[in-house]
């Protein structure tokens, strides 16, 4: 079976986010980049399925040269090969169309990704890929099992969970519980250096959105401290001052 995993290159979760003085871009100076945590869960499940069902795991990323260390890390975790589409991933529809073209041409059985990237929080790309490929999508999935050409998934819905089944090929986006990420071992790290990382140029041009300005949240005013002897004062303040209860 052929598994494709979409990988986003995102700032580490502990990063203090700042923007350039003109407010037009994210300030990447000194920022450590990682595999988007949800994508890493997706990658792990793809590797587990490969181990039981056989096949190959290919990772794909739309990004500039700077994303390659992140892709090498995914190869060290166990992916077989990587594709980098050489373009800035500024628009979800553009990213999705690029990936969909390759996924369709190369007849991947399952296209994996995370439920959203932790930088732009779009939660858009996976659904878009599915629509471009005209195949089913199951987003925010917490479980995936494959038997023959049918997959059964559990996914989160507002106020509960849903068990669904779809036929291959399909697109899935991973939510926590999907798989437990693995730490690459020394052999994986060594072999990652020699695995194939193919660079291709983009073929689409449609980019209907762009982030034109950024801002950090306004600083909070001083925290009002309440005596632990009289916690009921908090409830009074929430009622009379904040007026929310």
């Amino acid at each position: 079976m052929k598994f494709l995993v979409c990988i986003s290159h995102v700032p580490d979760t502990t990063t203090r986010i700042t923007f350039t003085p003109d407010g037009k871009a994210f300030n990447t100076a000194g920022v450590q980049f990682i595999i988007n945590p949800y994508d890493e869960m997706a990658l792990t499940r793809a590797l587990e399925l490969k181990e039981t069902l056989g096949g190959t795991v290919t990772i794909i990323n739309v990004g500039p040269l700077a994303t390659e260390p992140t892709l090498r890390k995914a190869l060290a975790i166990g992916a077989d090969e990587a594709i980098r589409i050489n373009a800035e991933p500024t628009d979800a529809l553009f990213v999705a169309e690029e990936i969909a073209v390759i996924a369709k041409n190369e007849k991947f059985d399952i296209v994996f990704g995370g439920r959203e990237s932790i930088d732009y929080n779009g939660a858009q790309v996976m659904g878009m890929i599915a629509e471009f490929m005209e195949i089913p999508s199951v987003v925010i999935a917490t479980k995936l099992d494959v038997v023959g050409t049918t997959a059964t998934l559990e996914r989160e819905i507002d106020g509960g969970k849903e068990i669904v089944s779809v036929n291959l090929p399909f697109v899935v986006s991973a939510q926590k519980d999907f798989a437990e990420p693995r730490i690459p071992n020394m052999r994986g790290i060594m072999s990652a250096r020699i695995k194939s990382l193919k660079v291709v140029e983009p073929t689409n041009t449609l980019k209907p959105t762009s982030s034109v300005a950024f801002q950090t949240p306004p600083p909070k005013s001083e925290c009002k401290m309440i005596s632990p002897e009289h916690p009921e004062e908090l409830i009074q303040l929430l009622h009379t001052e904040a007026k929310i209860i």
């Binding site: 994210f26 932790i118 209907p208 959105t209 762009s210 034109v212 950090t216 949240p217």
Partner: peptide
């Protein structure tokens, strides 16, 4: 954006 650590203004041209 950045999971609540920032805001961004998105321009839509379609």
């Amino acid at each position: 954006c950045f999971s609540g650590k920032g805001f961004t203004d998105v321009q839509v041209s379609s």
